[in-house]
Simulated scan of single mutants.
Amino acid sequence: MDKSVRPAVLQAISSIRERYFEPITLADLASEVFVSRFHFSRMFADATGVTPGRFLTAVRLFEAKRLLLTTSLNVSDIVCSVGYSSVGTFTSRFSRAVGMTPTQYREPQVAELLVAISPTLRRLPPLRTLRAAGRNCASLQSGTGELAIQLDLPSGSAPADTLVGLFADPVPQCGPVAFTGMANVHSAELTINGAPAGQWTAIAVAQHQPGAAGPRFSIAYSTVHVAPHGRSATRIALRAPAPTDAPIAITLASKQSPFTQRMLADARPHLRAVA
C-alpha cells in the first residue's frame, strides 16, 4: 500500500478499536480521515484484506468473546458494551457466526482450547493440546485431502508452539475445518490430514519461547488449495502481528469433535479461565 495513505488506515483502525461500542458508520470513518467513502473503503480493504464493516464486526465479536470468557457480566450487559442494541439480534448473529450460543461459549472447554490474537490478548492452547493435534488432527468436516505445509518462522525468532488451521473465512469466528499443531518447533513441515477439498484460508499462529530478539507471537495468512485426493503442498512465512490484522478469537472446542472430547477427558482436572 502507498505509504501516503497508510496513516489514514491506521487512524481509522484506531478509531474502530477505541469506539467499537458506538454506532460507527462508514461515513464517520471516511470523514475522520478526509477521504470519500468509496476511496476509504478501497484503501482500507487493500491494507487489511476486509471491508471496514467486517473489521468493525470482528472487533465487536472479539470483545464479546473476551467478556464472555473473562467476566461474569450477563449477556444483555455484554451486548450493550460491544455496540449492539438488541439481545436477540446479537444472539442470532453470534450463534450463526460462532456455531455456539453466547451461553455455550462460556463452557470451560471453550477457554481451554482458545486461540486468540489481538493487541490485548494473545494465546494458544496448552502444549498437550498441540501435541495431541500433531498426533491426530481432528477435522470438523470429513475430508480425504492431505496438506503439507512448510512453515518459516521469522528470522532470528525462538522456537515456537505452532498451530495451523484451515478456515472458510479470512476472519474466522468459528473453528477450523481441519487443523494440526506442533510444540517447540522452528521452521518445519506440518501435515494436515483429513482436510476437505477446496480453497481455504490457512492461518498459522506461533507462540515463541522467551529469550530471543524476535517476536513473542507470529502469524500468517495464506490462501491454499486442497486436492480431493492425494497430497497438496504450500509454504507459509510467519511474521509479527500488524495493526492491520483483524482480531481473532476461535476455539478448537466443538461438541461434535472427537478431538474436543479427548482433550476434555485429559484436561478436565486442570481447566482454567483465560486471563
Rank of each mutant, 00 (worst) to 15 (best):
L69N: 05
I78K: 10
V87M: 04
A58Q: 01
V59Y: 02
T71D: 14
A116T: 08
Y105I: 14
F90N: 01
P108D: 00
S92T: 11
P52K: 08
Q109W: 08
I78V: 14
A58W: 05
T101S: 15
L67K: 11
V87R: 01
L113R: 13
T70W: 00
L73P: 06
A97C: 10
R54P: 06
R93K: 13
T71E: 12
G88C: 10
I117W: 02
T101M: 14
L67A: 11
R96W: 07
A97M: 04
V87F: 01
G83L: 08
S92A: 11
A111P: 11
P52D: 04
V79M: 01
P52W: 01
I117T: 07
S92L: 02
V59T: 05
Y105K: 14
D77M: 12
A111H: 07
A97K: 15
A58D: 05
G83E: 07
G83Y: 02
E107W: 00
L56K: 00
E112K: 09
T120R: 15
R93D: 15
D77R: 12
S95I: 12
G53V: 00
F55K: 04
R54I: 11
G99E: 07
D77V: 03
I117L: 11
R93I: 12
R122D: 06
R60S: 00
R123D: 05
R93T: 15
T70E: 15
K65G: 00
R122S: 06
S85D: 13
R66W: 08
F90M: 03
V79T: 07
S118M: 04
P102D: 10
E63T: 03
P119C: 01
R122C: 09
N74V: 08
S76D: 08
F62H: 10
L61K: 05
I78H: 09
F55W: 10
E112G: 10
F90V: 04
L56Q: 06
C80G: 13
G99T: 03
L61E: 00
T103L: 06
R106G: 11
A58T: 02
Y84H: 06
P119S: 07
Q109C: 09
L113E: 13
S72P: 06
S72E: 13
T71F: 13
L121G: 04
V87G: 02
V115F: 10
R123M: 14
L114C: 08
T91K: 09
V75F: 01
K65N: 02
I78R: 06
V87W: 01
G99S: 15
N74I: 03
R123L: 14
S95C: 03
G53E: 06
L73Y: 13
S92D: 05
A111W: 06
V59H: 11
T70K: 09
V75I: 09
R106H: 04
R54G: 01
V59P: 03
K65F: 02
R66Q: 12
T91Q: 15
G83R: 00
F90W: 02
K65M: 05
E63L: 04
R122I: 07
E63C: 07
R96N: 14
A116N: 06
R96L: 09
L61I: 14
E107Q: 07
R93H: 07
Y105F: 15
G99F: 06
V87Q: 03
E63R: 09
T70G: 13
L69M: 09
V75L: 10
P108N: 00
V82R: 15
T70Y: 06
E112N: 13
K65L: 00
L61R: 11
G53L: 02
S72M: 12
C80W: 02
F55M: 10
G88R: 14
N74F: 01
A64D: 03
